[in-house]
C-alpha cells in the first residue's frame, strides 16, 4: 500500500515535468502584422513522421536528418524581422521566458551584446541524463527568434548539419572586428 502511494506521489510530481513543453503564446502572432519578414514553422510529431517518410535512405544528408528527428516530438520556430527597432516589447517574449524558468529547463548559454543589443539564450530540458528538449531565444532590436525542439536531441548532431540538407555551413571562427560582448 505504501509502495503504491509512493509511486502515485512520484508520478504526480514528475508528470508536469514530462508534459512541460514550450507553448508559443498567441500574442506573438500579432507581431506578424508589424514584421517585415515572418517565419512560422510548426512541425508536430505527425508532420515530422510525414517529413521523415520523404527523406531518402540512400542520401547521406537525409539519413543524418532522419536520425536527428527520429527522437523528436515537435519543432516550432517563430522568427520575426522588423524594419525598425521597438516593434516588439519584452512583455511579448516574457511568457516564453517564464516557461523556460522552470526546474525542467536549464539555461546553458546566455549571450548579451551591449553593442548590438542582441540577447541570445539556449535552454535544454534534461531528464534521465538525456536532453529532452532544446529552446533558443534570440532577441535583437529588429529581430525576434524563438526555436523550440521537443524530444530527445543531440546538439552535436544539429551542429553537424551545417553544410548539409540545404543548410549553409556556418563558420564558427572568430569574426574580424566583432563587437564587445559580455
Amino acid at each position: 500500500m505504501i509502495a503504491i502511494k509512493t509511486i502515485l506521489v512520484a508520478w504526480i510530481a514528475l508528470a508536469p515535468l514530462g508534459a512541460q513543453e514550450i507553448k508559443i503564446p498567441a500574442s506573438l502572432d500579432r507581431l506578424a502584422a508589424k514584421a517585415s519578414e515572418v517565419v512560422d514553422v510548426t512541425l508536430d510529431a505527425n508532420l515530422l513522421q510525414l517529413a521523415s517518410r520523404f527523406l531518402s535512405d540512400k542520401d547521406p544528408d537525409d539519413v543524418q536528418v532522419k536520425k536527428l528527428i527520429g527522437g523528436l516530438k515537435g519543432i516550432y520556430v517563430r522568427s520575426f524581422e522588423f524594419e525598425k527597432p521597438g516593434e516588439y516589447q519584452d512583455s511579448d517574449v516574457e511568457p516564453v521566458r517564464a516557461q523556460l524558468h522552470t526546474p525542467a529547463w536549464s539555461r546553458i548559454v546566455g549571450v548579451r551584446s551591449q553593442k548590438s543589443g542582441e540577447n541570445a539564450e539556449v535552454y535544454v530540458k534534461t531528464g534521465n541524463g538525456k536532453i529532452g528538449g532544446l529552446a533558443i531565444l534570440v532577441t535583437d532590436p529588429k529581430e525576434l527568434t524563438i526555436v523550440s525542439i521537443e524530444g530527445s536531441i543531440d546538439p552535436d548532431q544539429l551542429n553537424e548539419l551545417g553544410g548539409h540538407f540545404g543548410i549553409p555551413k556556418v563558420d564558427t571562427r572568430k569574426e574580424a572586428g566583432h563587437g564587445k560582448d559580455e
Binding site: V39, V41, L43, L47, L48, A51, V65, L68, I69, I75, V77, S79, V109, V111, S113, E118, A120, V122, I136, V138, T145, V147, I149, P155, L158, N159, L161, G162, F165, G166, I167, P168, V170, D171, T172, R173, K174, E175, H178, D181
Partner: peptide
C-alpha cells in the same frame, strides 16, 4: 518546413557559438 526549421536552428546556434 523541416529544412527551414533546421536551417534557422543551426544558424542561430552557430551565431551564439561564434559569439561565445
Amino acid at each position: 518546413r523541416l529544412q527551414l526549421a533546421l536551417k534557422i536552428t543551426v544558424t542561430e546556434l552557430s551565431k551564439i557559438q561564434r559569439t561565445v
